[in-house]
Design a protein around this nucleic acid. Structure first.
Length: 650
RNA sequence: GGGGCGGUAGCUCAAUUGGUUAGAGUACCGGACUGUCGAUCCGGUGGUUGCGGGUUCGAGUCCCGUCCGCCUCGCCA
């Protein structure tokens, strides 16, 4: 009997949630609460779609059968008002069943109506469309201006699509928590009022009232604290934690964002990777469960995520995909054709055989040529398309992309074999050599880049690869596909752009060098590989981590190579170095971008869509009007004053 | 800090070469209607064209400045 089954959503005020209603409730007397999503008014017969977080159900107000409803205001119901109704669940006629709605087999015949909240008369219009209509509009390209949506975020949050993304995020985080809990990790909170951490972006500062002229920094990450937790003996730590960075924003960057942060003791790379793979798999499967009813195809893609993930070395990723975060949803592998081009004439040869001087005075072969075979695509790229590739690589300082269309079978010569932008440089020998290298056959397009710096050539071709894939629709060909990959064996150092001949950490200065490269630390720092790893999904970096240095001797040695004076070391990281002197265990960890992860699993391009209260591109919140001007009195108490007066607000 | 696009009714958009009283859909208000599902039909309210200045007989439209939003480079793991 329907009534005997109590809903887990029952409260003092309601008997059921709207979304749970179905055939099994036929005949049940129910009390429901929700927002008016839509209203279809036939005069003495009114249909209302009532909405809550669990779904939408149709309630029927039949004024002829229930004359009392008229007095209760049935014909004055407006969109987004909050109703409480009592009534009886009944099955719909066969022809009025709505299969697309989980509650579409039933409706509720209302006998009693109460307004829990009315939209007052002076509010003529809601400032933004909300509920289902907002989602329908958005799907048709009629999305409301994001600034207004943020100003009235509490209304925007009523949209089913936004609620679902926020709930998906909750599921993902729950899955993370239960995974790490079951694996013996301890959730430890770390300070927000702290000291600048070594990530190297700008800090948000908090003035101290008690200490004039002194400031806390909000953490860019809990990096140092989690390492100190390892020193403190908490050998498995994790936290889903807010981080703060005062840099310019993008659709995938907010001033405050969330990381899944973890650190482990007595581990190598393998141990960390295995835990994270398990957590990510669990989170994807949890997301799949949420999406199963509404989006079975994507759920299937998430269900297919399986640990262990692929691994690729930095070197291989750069060679084959021109990026340290390769998108592996499609093939299109880049080929090194430096040797072939070195035999050619003109700029190809010059680029491929150029030498450069490394810091320390060593000469190295720096130049390189890269080729990309785009199968069966000679016809798909017009002259204009090919010319426009130049703008793809211009940021890398490369003027253009050479191309070659294979028009003839092997044995054909000159123009009968290939059309090409190389002109006279394209001797039959070079063409055959290139085609042999890339495996090009009739109908293929082959793209070619040469540059005096190998990394530039490689990365430029990486951009071309993505551009070509985009144009051919390869990136989103299977929207459900999830290609996770670990990039490993990153270089420990890169050339410091700010200090001629100096070195900067490729990630951060606590990364452990690979033992087999230790002998090159001072002699050939750029060739030293690190124990750093990145987790990459579909060409987006989701997180990075490393096995850390755990002896003060090595840590000081690295600081030395980075050119940090004893004084700077002591001031910035003194407490870490001190801690290490009391015995730090070998340890390593990782941090994952939770907002980005949730955005990707939600198939939304912006992390603002998975954050309940996000900020604009200029780090403001139109709803609270933060940041705002502080009173002189308050500033005085904090021993600070603004050096430029704030502009008057419009 | 640089570049691009945009800002017109509550919301989404239109407005010819600078030319009549700035239109439409939706929402809202009023009316009709018992099986709808973005209900339908009829009528109506609603505008400092982001802001400031300029050119012009005349500016939503052209010019200068400025503010805001989004995308992006720099920056940022």
């Amino acid at each position: 009997m329907a009534q005997s089954e109590e809903s887990s959503f029952r409260t003092t005020i309601r008997s059921h949630a709207l979304g749970e209603l179905g055939k099994k409730h036929e005949g049940a007397q129910v009390t429901l609460c929700g927002w008016v999503d839509r209203r279809r008014d036939h005069g003495s017969l009114i249909f209302v779609d009532l909405r809550d977080r669990y779904g939408i159900a149709q309630i029927v107000l039949d004024l002829a059968c229930h004359p009392g409803l008229e007095k209760q205001g049935a014909s004055t119901i407006r969109i987004e008002e909050i109703l409480k109704v009592q009534g009886k669940v009944r099955l719909r006629d066969a022809e009025s069943v709505r299969k697309e709605n989980p509650t579409g087999e039933v409706e509720v015949e209302v006998s009693d109506l109460v307004f829990l909240a009315r939209v007052p008369q002076d509010v003529k219009n809601l400032p933004v469309p909300t509920g289902t209509s907002a989602d329908v509009d958005a799907k048709k390209g009629k999305e409301t201006d994001e600034e207004v949506r943020m100003q009235f975020r509490y209304l925007d949050l009523r949209r089913p699509s936004l609620q679902q993304r926020i709930m998906l995020r909750h599921r993902i985080c729950s899955a993370f928590r239960s995974w790490f809990d079951s694996r013996g990790f301890v959730d430890v909170e770390t300070p927000f009022l702290t000291k600048s951490t070594p990530e190297g972006s700008r800090d948000y500062l908090v003035p101290s009232r008690i200490h004039p002229g002194h400031f806390y920094a909000l953490p860019q990450s809990p990096q140092l604290f989690k390492q100190l937790l390892m020193v403190g003996g908490f050998d498995r730590y994790y936290q889903i934690v807010r981080c703060f960075r005062d840099e310019d924003l993008r659709k995938d960057r907010q001033p405050e964002f969330t990381q899944l942060d973890l650190e482990m003791t007595f581990v190598t790379e393998e141990d960390v990777l295995r835990e994270v793979e398990g957590a990510v798999e669990a989170a994807c499967h949890a997301a799949a469960s949420v999406l199963e009813p509404s989006e079975p195809a994507r759920a299937k893609g998430l269900r297919a995520v399986k640990a262990p993930f692929r691994r690729i070395t930095f070197q291989e990723a750069l060679l084959k995909y021109g990026s340290d975060k390769p998108d592996l949803r499609f093939a299109l592998e880049i080929v090194d054709v430096t040797a072939e081009c070195a035999k050619a004439e003109g700029f190809l040869k010059e680029a491929a055989t150029a030498t450069r001087t490394l810091p320390g005075g060593k000469a190295a072969l720096g130049g390189a040529a890269r080729a990309l075979r785009v199968p069966e695509s000679a016809e798909k790229f017009s002259r204009k398309d090919l010319d426009s590739l130049a703008s793809v690589v211009s940021d890398k300082g490369i003027k253009g992309v050479a191309w070659l269309k294979v028009v003839g079978e092997k044995g054909a010569k000159g123009k009968d074999r290939a059309q090409t932008s190389l002109g006279k440089l394209a001797t039959d020998e070079l063409v055959e050599a290139l085609l042999a290298a890339v495996g090009g056959v009739k109908g293929d397009l082959v793209l070619l880049i040469a540059n005096q710096k190998e990394r530039t050539a490689a990365e430029a071709m990486g951009l071309v690869r993505l551009h070509v894939a985009e144009k051919l629709g390869l990136r989103e060909k299977e929207p459900a596909r999830m290609e996770f990959v670990w990039a490993v064996e990153f270089p420990l150092f890169c050339e410091d752009p700010n200090r001629e001949g100096g070195y900067a950490p490729e990630s951060h200065p606590f990364t452990d060098p690979r033992p087999e490269d230790m002998d090159k630390l001072e002699s050939d720092p750029l060739l030293v590989r690190s124990r750093h790893y990145d987790l990459v999904l579909n060409g987006t970096e989701l997180g990075s981590g490393s096995v850390r240095i755990h002896t003060p001797e090595l840590q000081k040695r690295i600081f030395g190579i980075l050119g940090l004076s004893e004084e700077v070391q002591k001031r910035r990281f003194g407490f870490l170095l001190s801690a290490f002197r009391y015995g730090a265990p070998p340890h390593g960890g990782i941090a994952l971008g939770v907002d980005r992860f949730c955005a990707m699993l939600s198939k939304t391009p912006s992390i603002r869509d998975v954050i309940a209260f996000p900020k604009t591109n200029r780090a403001t919140d139109p709803m609270t009007d933060a940041p705002s001007i502080a009173e002189a009195e308050q500033l005085g108490e904090l021993h600070i004053q603004a050096c430029s007066p704030p502009p008057p607000k419009p």
